Computed example of a mutant assay.
Amino acid sequence: MKNEATWRETKYVQRGGRLRASTDLREVVMGSRLCGDCIARLYDEYLPRYARGAAADLGCGKVPLYGAYRPHVSSVTCVDWGNTPFQTTHLDFECDLNGALPLEDASFDTLILSDVLEHIARPEPLWAEMARILRPGGVAFVNTPFLYWVHGAPYDYYRYTEFAHRRFAEIAGFEVLVLERIGGLVEVACDVFAKSASAVPVVGNPVAALAQSAVGLWSRSSTGRKVAHWTGRKFPLGYFMVARRLPAPQQS
């Protein structure tokens, strides 16, 4: 990663010993704080378990998760395309993730694809490239939205179900270790409300912030987790996955 010393927190921040969505409206719009917090909790839980070795952040943008995964890996390579609206001085390779990646075979142990796959017009080739550049036993962290507004237009192409995630991963030669739904009906309803409310002048942002704070507390309670588990089967806000690269089949 270029210019590591100048990296700063953007979308995600460490507060009180845990990863959270930033409250800086230049980094996270008011209506997306709840979603950001839900995603941050999952990376907080699973990065220490599975991230290791040489890491590549694909579709890295401003490298918002760098502070969370850096303590667990030995090196970081940042990859993104030229059309990204997020200007960064940390980019190692500029390329279109829909095509071949300028990275060597079996050269990484950890891949990060955070809010990226929905913007890839041809997901199958990217999965094949991920399998190519990962060492056997290496892992890919992937999160995508589901019941979530259109963003990054005109490059917002897909919403994947958990079944699609598992299918793409397994076809490419991965074993799914973790596949969790992000939120459920309550979180989806709050996300839509917060995004709508924040558009109202003067009072909108405080109302959206209050609603998301309340639902965030609910989501962390045992009852909230149970409700999200059941309602997320039909109404997930998104998905989070950790998939391990399997060894290539032995030639007979």
Results as ranks from 00 to 15, higher is better:
A189H: 05
A194V: 00
G204W: 05
A172L: 08
R225W: 04
S198L: 02
A243H: 07
L217F: 04
E162S: 05
T161E: 11
L217W: 06
V227T: 09
S219A: 13
P154Y: 01
I171Y: 11
V192L: 04
A214C: 07
G173T: 10
P247W: 15
G204D: 00
E180M: 07
G183P: 07
R244V: 10
L210H: 01
L237P: 07
T161M: 08
S213L: 01
D191L: 11
G173E: 12
K234S: 14
A197R: 00
V186P: 09
F163T: 10
V186F: 07
L210K: 12
V203N: 00
D191W: 12
V188W: 10
T223G: 07
A197M: 04
V176F: 11
R220W: 06
L210Y: 06
G224S: 02
G224L: 05
R159Q: 06
A211E: 06
L177A: 13
V200G: 02
H229E: 14
S222D: 15
A169F: 07
A169Y: 09
A243V: 06
L185G: 10
A164I: 06
S221Q: 04
F168N: 10
V192N: 04
A243T: 14
V192A: 13
G224Y: 09
R225Y: 00
R181G: 14
R159I: 07
A228Y: 14
V178T: 09
A208P: 07
D156M: 03
L185S: 12
W230K: 01
E170Y: 11
T161G: 14
K195S: 02
A189K: 02
G173Q: 11
L179V: 10
F193E: 01
A228L: 05
T161F: 15
S196V: 00
G183W: 07
G238A: 12
K234L: 15
T231A: 13
S213F: 12
A214M: 09
R181D: 05
G173K: 05
V178H: 12
Y155W: 03
G204R: 02
V242Y: 11
P236I: 14
V242I: 02
W230L: 03
E170T: 14
G183F: 08
W230A: 05
V178I: 12
L217Y: 08
G238R: 11
V227W: 10
R181K: 13
A153F: 02
Q212I: 02
S221R: 03
E170A: 15
A164E: 10
V242T: 09
G224D: 01
G173A: 12
Y157E: 08
A194G: 02
V200P: 00
A164G: 09
P206D: 01
R166T: 14
F240Q: 08
L210I: 05
V215E: 06
G184R: 13
S198V: 00
E175D: 15
Y160K: 01
E162F: 06
R159G: 06
A209N: 05
